[in-house]
């Protein structure tokens, strides 16, 4: 009777085509996997996987090209928006996106992200903000919270000598070239659903040629935060969300009025 049940069963959840059938190297509890899946689901739903070109950055997501099933190039640290510009200008009809962490985007790559946004490059940026350098083992990032302990701020980030975190979505929202910039979080199912919707908006923005789009995703790093996966999600909610408020920082009217068939 079991076999009959399976035959009649309806498949409700499967690996997106845009996600390669391999295990990731991400640590248990890290939300990179969630972010990857959301991007992959959106590309599948829009039917643009094979027309997409990804630009991997440097950091934990350096190997993201192993996990997305589409053409990919690997950028130098911080330079993904410049490299994406090069690809997009040659192939304007392809979907080009970068996937960058906070050290990559908001520290070493500050000039490249600002100017790609200011030019209104018709690309999509997925910005993973987990307030720490993951791959190099937990150093202070440009988004590390005041007082937060890292291996390079062992007594906690001292704002007197180490300055304050940078809020990229707010900064980018001031630029005329930006069409869509929002901050979402990956710390619970409701926020994850909102994140996916934002990612869809970002890619739809690019598909319609409306200009620069970015989704900032508050993300966890249990390993380098020294927390359990569960505690790290609580940390996002309790500590990161107040410092990096969730919301829509810039959505131009043409993006607001976009319509598409859910499928």
């Amino acid at each position: 009777m079991v076999a009959t049940d399976i035959q009649n069963a309806k498949l409700v959840y499967e690996r997106p085509e845009s996600l390669a059938d391999v295990a990731t190297h991400y640590c248990p509890g890290c939300t990179h996997g969630t972010a990857h899946r959301l991007v992959a689901e959106v590309l599948d739903e829009m039917g643009i996987r094979e027309h997409s070109i990804g630009v991997a950055s440097v950091g934990c997501s350096v190997f993201s090209y192993n996990y997305f099933d589409m053409d990919f190039v690997q950028a130098a640290h911080g330079r993904a928006p410049a490299m994406a510009t090069g690809v997009k200008r040659v192939f304007p009809d392809r979907t080009v996106f970068t996937y960058q962490g906070d050290g990559d985007l908001a520290s070493i790559g500050m000039a490249e992200i600002m100017h790609a946004a200011a030019r209104g490059e018709n690309i999509t940026v997925i910005f993973i903000n987990n307030a720490i350098y993951g791959m190099t083992g937990g150093q202070m990032a440009p988004t590390t919270l005041p007082g937060m302990k890292t291996t390079s701020s062992p007594r906690g980030r001292d704002v007197e000598t180490q300055g304050y975190p940078i809020r990229m979505s707010e900064i980018l929202a001031t630029l005329d070239g930006v069409s869509y910039v929002v901050r979402r979080s990956l710390h619970n199912p409701a926020e994850i659903r909102k994140s996916k919707k934002a990612i869809r908006y970002a890619f739809e923005t690019q598909q319609r040629g409306l200009g620069f789009s970015m989704v900032e995703l508050l993300s966890s790093c249990p390993t380098n935060w020294g927390m359990t996966p569960l505690d790290s999600l609580t940390f996002i909610e309790d500590k990161m969300v107040p410092a990096f408020p969730l919301g829509d920082y810039k959505v131009i009217d043409a993006v607001k009025s976009m319509k598409w068939k859910e499928g």
Binding site: A76, A82, G86, V90, R119
Partner: peptide
């Protein structure tokens, strides 16, 4: 395609992306 980049660092990385095509 022509882009006046924000720096030589960005320019060469734009070249990198375009060269990959």
């Amino acid at each position: 395609a022509f882009v006046q980049a924000e720096s030589e660092v960005a320019a060469i990385n734009m070249v990198y992306g375009a060269a990959c095509t």
